[in-house]
Simulated scan of single mutants.
Amino acid sequence: MTPRDASDAPDNRWSDLGRPPLNGTALRRALVREGGLWTDVRIVQRTGSTNTDLAGLVTRENADEGTVLVAEEQNAGRGRLDRRWTAPARSGLFFSVVLKPTGVPVERWGWLPLLTGVAVATALSRTAGVDTALKWPNDLLVTVDGEERKAGGILAERAGADAVVVGIGVNVTLGAAELPVPGAGSLLLAGATTTDRDTVLRTVLRSLEDWYGRWRAAAGDPAASGLQETYAAGSATLGRTVRAELPGGRSLVGEAVAVDGDGRLVIATEEGVQEPVGAGDVIHLRPA
């Protein structure tokens, strides 16, 4: 892939006045600075998956840490468990970033999707006025008409020996008739005070830079960096009765009581056993 900045392409600019294109020049001016995390912001009109494309850039060209790839439209976006993520062009934010957490033990890299969730939720609350909760391990939940809905997700994948590509998808202006599944939501439907994607993207990336910097400065220690406590405070999963669908076909039902130092969800069963879950699909069984 050779990414081409599509924000100024003459064949697409302002083709949908309700969903204007991102302004690549302004975003780079605002985000790329000496000594900052973000080193490049690339915008493409459409692609299959920004995670796949950016991972390719890492392995082929050793893309720098802080490279950001944004797609105005994804037609093969992926979530956890190879679930597909599709949305109309310019209706959301679909982007991936390269992180190279040198100095952080590899066993703590599992905190990166949770860290990203905290950063995104913080940014959406601050900028769009939308209270965003975190469903372990990587879903972003908003409230629409009193109902908990998924408005975004996060996917972190290793790329090469020293890099992680973190993909983020957020539904911004999807209307009710455009939702891919009944349980989906968007910032618009959640009553956002702004749906300007340039503003939201800038705030999300600045928040991610802040939290990533704190975490790295603490050598990835989730407690010392404040990440573990902040994640727990914003979790929609803790305190709920959940069912975890685990690898190998096993399921576990109980109360989600904690996120441990390794980022695993600790589930207390009726038998009095507390079992940490590091991978699997978690289903909320009752309202908070």
Rank of each mutant, 00 (worst) to 15 (best):
D221R: 02
A236T: 03
L22G: 05
V170A: 05
V97E: 00
D210C: 03
A71V: 14
V166N: 03
V32Y: 06
K100C: 00
D53Y: 12
A156Q: 02
A218R: 04
D40I: 03
P88L: 14
W215I: 01
W111I: 03
V142P: 02
L99N: 00
V164Q: 00
R42W: 05
R149G: 02
D162H: 09
R243V: 13
G146K: 07
P10R: 07
L179Y: 03
A184T: 12
L205W: 11
V70A: 01
V257H: 08
R214C: 05
G18W: 11
S125W: 04
T230P: 01
D262V: 11
D262K: 13
G175I: 11
G272F: 12
V253N: 06
V41D: 02
L112D: 06
P180N: 06
A55W: 00
S251F: 13
V172F: 09
A87G: 05
P276T: 12
A151N: 05
P101L: 00
W136Y: 10
T116W: 10
A119Q: 04
D64T: 00
I267C: 08
D281I: 06
A55V: 03
L54Y: 05
G213V: 01
L140I: 10
A233V: 04
Q74V: 07
N12F: 08
R206E: 14
G110D: 08
V166Q: 00
V68H: 04
L57C: 02
V277C: 08
G103Y: 06
E107Q: 13
S235V: 13
Q274K: 15
A190D: 08
P287Y: 11
I168E: 02
R214W: 10
T230N: 05
K135A: 03
R78F: 07
E229K: 15
R108E: 09
D8I: 07
A219R: 15
G92F: 03
E245F: 04
G152P: 09
A279V: 14
R264G: 08
K135W: 00
Q228P: 01
E209C: 01
D196S: 11
L114Q: 09
A224K: 10
A128H: 01
A236D: 07
M1I: 07
P113A: 09
V106T: 04
